[in-house]
């Protein structure tokens, strides 16, 4: 689909992609705590960037959802930053659409990511999402999930320990 968008500037393919992922992007934007209209604008900016830069998408490196996730992440940082030149922009942190394509590195990343997702127990992964990907405090997470605060903290610790082990294993 992205290839059709990139090569043929295919609006129909883009509309299909929009139907597939805009609701998910919006769901995530809302979970980040953005107000309805801010979330919708962020989703539109993200999809516009996907349209503009579809040629840079490299399926060897990441899946569509991962790519879309990184674009939304970057757009959000830059919206928060607005015109403040002395604060950090997403351009400083990541090369947005790097030209060099390293297939080996892409394969390794994909394998590492698959292991991460497979080996993390679901609850730990969800708490990891709540805390790091949605920016919620431990007590908010505890309240939302109806868990004692101590259990949230220990799940998070277990998740991070598991990530450490996976990292060490992937180096061997």
């Amino acid at each position: 689909m992205i290839r059709r968008i990139a090569n043929d500037r295919d609006r129909e393919a883009f509309a299909m992609l929009y139907d597939e992922i805009s609701g998910n992007l919006n769901g995530y934007a809302r979970r980040l705590g953005l107000a309805k209209s801010d979330a919708e604008e962020l989703v539109q900016e993200t999809l516009l960037a996907i349209w503009r830069n579809a040629a840079a998408f490299n399926p060897d490196k990441a899946g569509v959802y991962t790519w879309a996730f990184t674009i939304l992440r970057n757009k959000r940082i830059d919206r928060l930053r607005k015109d403040k030149l002395r604060t950090v922009s997403s351009d400083d942190l990541w090369q947005q659409f790097p030209a060099e394509k390293n297939r080996d590195e892409g394969d390794l990343n994909a394998r590492f990511a698959r292991n991460l997702i497979k080996d993390l127990p679901d609850e730990q992964r969800q708490i990891l999402y709540n805390v790091y990907f949605e920016g919620k405090s431990h007590s908010v997470v505890a309240k939302e999930r109806g868990m004692p605060l101590g259990s949230v903290k220990s799940s998070l610790r277990l998740a991070i320990n598991r990530l450490k082990k996976l990292t060490q294993a992937s180096k061997q």
């Binding site: 919006n26 990184t70 990907f133 992937s170």
Partner: peptide, 25 residues
Amino acid sequence: DCRQQSAGFEALGGQLLDEIEPTPL
């Protein structure tokens, strides 16, 4: 090594996006 880990964590974000409850626009 760290680049690879960071990309792995981005993929976790991708997975979150994939399985999240959609909020239609």
